[in-house]
């Protein structure tokens, strides 16, 4: 049992870690752009804002499995293959990016407009406001948002397992569902639950500890 679960757990962690990193790389700037380009934002660009919103909504409408299949060619292009944990990272990161953008957007929007106004009154540039005000002031909320993203990606990665991505989801389906080894399925699911609980717990503690509000 252990020789089945432990490598699968490591695969899941590997997939989730890298897809989180890449989805943040893609989604974080998008989230910031959404906030600064909106009406009365610090870099108001209504047209760009409308386009970004459109793209994000379309991407978020796709069922994840379909998006993953559509993105197989991209996986081949980037990592050279369409099957396996590394290959799964590409669609995972892209699927999660629009979600990340929305999470970041809502965190940044929590900041009091007055604080941004007073930063402008002190002569801040747009980039100074982003890096010295928006991000530091919303950090506790951003950490919670990133925690939600990781947990979402654990769920997605289980689905990726179903189409050859490996990991705990793969084990649960292959052994538990197809071979009727219910115990394997139960344990795989239990490990996922523990993982999710642990990450949420750490996220909450981190967020609370740095929050000074």
């Amino acid at each position: 049992m252990a020789e089945l679960i432990i490598p699968a757990l490591l695969e899941t962690i590997y997939m989730v870690f890298f897809s989180t990193v890449f989805s943040l790389v893609l989604g974080f700037p998008l989230g910031v752009l959404l906030v600064i380009t909106e009406k009365n934002g610090i870099w108001e660009k209504k047209q760009l804002n409308r386009i970004l919103n459109g793209i994000i909504n379309v991407l978020r409408s796709f069922p994840f499995i379909i998006l993953m299949i559509l993105l197989f060619p991209l996986s081949r292009l980037i990592v050279g293959k369409t099957i396996g944990t590394t290959a799964a990272i590409v669609p995972l990161a892209i699927a999660a990016a629009p979600f990340v953008a929305r999470v970041i957007e809502s965190s940044l929007k929590e900041i009091d407009k007055g604080v941004i106004e007073s930063s402008l009154a002190m002569g801040c540039t747009v980039s100074q406001i982003i890096f010295k005000v928006l991000i530091p002031e919303s950090l506790p909320s951003l950490i919670l948002g990133i925690t939600t993203t990781i947990i979402n990606l654990i769920g997605y990665s289980a689905m990726a397992g179903a189409i050859g991505g490996g990991g705990l989801g793969d084990v649960a389906i292959r052994y538990g569902l197809y071979r009727f080894q219910t115990d394997v399925m139960v344990i795989a699911v239990a490990v996922i639950i523990v993982l999710v609980q642990g990450i949420q717990f750490i996220g909450n503690i981190l967020s609370n500890n740095i929050n000074r509000k």
Binding site: D112, V115, A121, M122, P136, E137, R212
Partner: peptide
């Protein structure tokens, strides 16, 4: 304009301090 703003201090009804600093 940015240079001008550095020459004009401003305070607000709700203080608008940075809560995380």
């Amino acid at each position: 304009l940015r240079d001008l703003r550095k020459d004009i201090g401003m305070i607000f009804q709700h203080f608008n301090l940075f809560s995380q600093k």
